[in-house]
């Protein structure tokens, strides 16, 4: 099967210019990124601040194009500007700040903004708005002003706005960074459900470890490169390496690893609280 997203040696350089337009400083934000994402997957990209993960996200949406290398989204080359609208329609993007991506004064009008732009007929827009608002459980707020919603609710409206364009893939660039724990949970739950029920490919960019436990595959970025790749269990088992990239593993995994250090025999790749309790109970039974 053809991968939905295929990045081949993607390099991106931000250059700073002086008044005459001469390049004074080059900052390599992406340095040879290779990623393949299969359609329907839930992929997480982890990275600390400045690791290049947001720059990479913008490439997936053709908001930035590679300086070197190529990036294909659904078989289309992102560096060809004729593909821009098609790519943005198939791979929608949700940003970090919920306030700065909601365009309209009324929730339903905001969700309709994307379909309006791609020229969907009026009745179909209404159908899609209803469907996508129900999908993120925000239908009863459709007539309200987004200013009166909580951060998590705004973020779900933003997701609905992307869903209304009928994408195959949603890229979320640190969607929970500005939310409280409650809002964070609701957004991640929505994203997971879209992945399971609607079979939407999810690319979640984040630095919260707890959010990636549900992912099928995890990439860890550091200084513009992919440093680690694997399933969440494989990644979290390598905790020393993770700290090198300024990332910390989830609390439960940390406790489990500490326990192992003390000589208690439990598996190394624990992700959830229940798993740890079960492992410890099992141990107790054996004694």
């Amino acid at each position: 099967m053809r991968p939905f997203i295929k990045a081949e040696n993607v390099v991106h350089e931000y250059s700073r210019r002086d008044e005459e337009g001469n390049v004074t400083d080059i900052n390599r934000a992406l340095d040879g990124v290779d990623i393949e994402v299969t359609a329907g997957d839930f992929v997480a990209v982890l990275g600390a601040n400045g690791s290049g993960k947001s720059t990479f996200a913008k490439h997936l949406n053709a908001l930035l194009v590679p300086t070197e290398g190529t990036l294909y989204v659904d078989g289309k080359d992102t560096s060809d500007h004729n593909n821009d609208l098609k790519i943005r329609q198939t791979a929608g993007m949700v940003f970090q700040n919920p306030d700065n991506q909601i365009i309209s004064n009324i929730v339903e009008e905001d969700v309709g903004f994307g379909p309006e732009n791609i020229g969907v007929p009026t009745e179909e827009i209404w159908r899609r708005v209803e469907e996508s608002l129900k999908n993120v459980e925000m239908y009863e707020y459709r007539k309200q002003s987004p200013n009166h919603l909580s951060g998590g609710q705004k973020q779900r409206v933003a997701i609905a706005g992307i869903m209304a364009m009928k994408p195959n893939c949603i890229i979320l660039d640190e969607p929970t960074a500005m939310l409280d724990p409650e809002g964070r949970k609701s957004v991640i739950k929505t994203v997971r459900e879209l992945n399971k029920k609607e079979n939407i490919t999810i690319i979640l960019i984040t630095h919260y470890m707890e959010e990636v436990t549900a992912a099928d595959y995890v990439y860890v970025m550091g200084s513009g490169q992919i440093k680690m790749r694997g399933t969440p269990r494989q990644i979290f088992a390598r905790s020393e390496e993770l700290t090198k990239y300024k990332l910390t593993i989830p609390e439960v995994t940390k406790i489990a690893l500490e326990l192992i250090k003390k000589g208690i025999q439990i598996p190394k790749d624990i992700l959830y609280v229940e798993e740890l309790t079960n492992a410890l109970l099992k141990l107790k039974m054996h004694q």
Binding site: K58, G92, M93, N97, G112, G114, G119, V120, M165
Partner: peptide, 21 residues
């Protein structure tokens, strides 16, 4: 930020745009 978000949602001016209302 907003300009970027509008770009990401396929905004390209009034041309070929339909209306929800």
């Amino acid at each position: 930020d907003l300009a970027l978000a509008m770009d990401a949602r396929c905004y390209h001016g009034g041309e070929g745009r339909t209306k929800m209302k």
